[in-house]
Amino acid sequence: MLRIIRYSFADLIRSRWLYFYTGFYLVLTGALFFISADLSKVIVSLMNAILFIVPLVALLFGVMVQYNTREFTELLLAQPIPRRSIFLGQYLGIASALAISFLLGAGIPFVISGIFISSEIWNFSILLLSGVLLSYIFSALGYLLALINDNRIRGFGLAIVVWLALAVIYDGLFLLGLAWFSDYPLENAAIFITIFNPIDLARILILLKLDVSALMGYTGAVFNQFLGTSLGMGLALIVLVIWAVLPVSMIRFISLRKDF
C-alpha cells in the first residue's frame, strides 16, 4: 500500500494543477500580508478563502484523479494486490498531496512574516489544521463520488452539487430554519445541526478563536458552555476527523464490492 500511496502522491505532485494550487495560496497569503499589517485580519480573510476553495478543489481533484487513473487502476487490479491497498493508497496519495501543497502555499508567507514569534500562532495553526482536515474530507468525498458513478459528467456534476449544498445551501436552510423556529430555544439544535456540515464545523473551530467576545454567552448557557470552552474545540475536531473517516470507510466498502 505504501508503494501505491507514494506512486499516486508523486504522480499528483508532478501535475501542473497542483503547482497552480500551491501558487494560488502563495500569492493570496502573500498579498494579504502585503496589504494588511494586521495579522488577525489576514487570518479572517484567509479563513474565508480556505472555507470556500479548499473543499471545492479537493472535491474536484478527488473526482478527477479517480477518473484519470481508471485504466491504471484496472491494470493494478489485475495484479495480486489487495483491493483495499489499491484504493485507499490512491486516496491517501491524493489527499496528502493536496494537504501538503495547501500547507506549503499558505504556510510559507506566514513563516516569512514571522508568525512564530507572534501571539497569533495558535489562531494560525487552527486555520492550517482545519484546511488540512477539509482537504482530507473532501477529497475522500470526491473520490467516493467518482467511484460510485462511472459516468464522468455525472460524477463532476454531483461533486459540484455537493460543494454548493455544503458551502451555501445548507447554511441557507439552516438560517431559514432558525428564523422560522425563533420562538423556541434553539441553542442545542443549532450546535447539533452544524455537526452535519464539515465546512460549518471548520468555520466554528476558527471562529472560536477569533470572535470569542461576541460568542461568549450572547445566547444562553449552552453556547457559553460549548463555544466558550476547550470542550467545544475538542468535540469539533473529533467530529471533523469522523467526517474524514466515514467516506474513507465507504470507499473501502464499495471498492471491495464494485465490479470493474
Partner: peptide
C-alpha cells in the same frame, strides 16, 4: 439585523452565505 432577530443565528457568522 438577522442576529438581533434570532440570536442563535450567530453560529453562522463569517460563513459564505452570510458574506453573500
Amino acid at each position: 439585523y438577522v442576529v438581533d432577530q434570532t440570536p442563535e443565528t450567530i453560529i453562522l457568522m463569517r460563513s459564505l452565505l452570510v458574506e453573500i
